[in-house]
Design a protein around this nucleic acid. Structure first.
Lengths: 123, 123
DNA sequence: CAGCTATTAAACCAACTGGTTGACCTTCCT
DNA sequence: AGGAAGGTCAACCAGTTGGTTTAATAGCTG
């Protein structure tokens, strides 16, 4: 099960290491799409794009449902959450990025929430 | 510069897609280590481990400083932060995992912080 | 039925990965 | 000076990746 988690992280991070696949996930964040729609924005053959989707699928990031002749894909966010959990271990190393949360929780525990600035970035 | 960010994400996620390298980062989270120390826990040749360190270095995750005959490595957390930023875009998809932060900030803004449980996982 | 649409499958290719080994520098120790 | 310690580099290898093209399958549509 720990083993499982490692192979999961392997495949998830690998899936994320390609720009095309990251873009596909972004598309899927906006809603379901079939393979053709996912492939369209990328300058490559349909077959190549289809392979990318398969990589995402194997990483558990995408679920596919066949609907007539179309394969409709939907985002499966759980593995991203797992990856984020792994990353967040290092949270304490990047200054103020989200050390914020712990600060807030601590302050809250003491019944006295202090004031903080917020600056979040978008993509 | 956007371009730069993409190649960074490519190399960072790729670096993270290997278990050995993730373990090395964990070691470095505890403090500086030279290559030999980083290599020791892993059943592979010294040279192989050295290559892994180089991958981490190229991804900007590790900084190396030569000290006599030893190469001392230190964790460079910034790219992890960048990766996390990318991942956190999907935050809204995994239920309540850390929607917590925003909740807290919102509550704080209203001058009334509500109580929450915290449950974080380790690796 | 024919033909278009959506998609996979298979064969192939060049480039990269993760690993090995052996040769080779430096630096430290005695 | 000589040798061990800490690392790199280059060559090599098998397996994977990301891409191509061509062919095949399955579902709609007229």
């Amino acid at each position: 099960m720990i083993e499982e988690r490692h192979t999961t992280l392997d495949s998830v991070f690998h899936a994320l290491s390609d720009r095309t696949r990251r873009a596909m996930l972004r598309s899927l964040a906006a809603g379901e799409h079939n393979i053709g729609e996912l492939a369209a924005p990328h300058r490559m053959s349909f077959a190549a794009a289809s392979k990318h989707v398969k990589v995402l699928e194997k990483a558990g990031l995408v679920r596919r449902r066949v609907e007539g002749r179309a394969h409709v894909c939907r985002l499966e966010p759980q593995p991203l959450c797992t990856a984020d959990e792994w990353l967040r271990f290092y949270e304490r190393f990047w200054p103020e990025r989200l050390g914020l949360l712990d600060e807030l929780l601590r302050a809250e525990d003491q019944g006295a929430a202090s004031r903080h600035k917020r600056g979040r970035s978008k993509d």
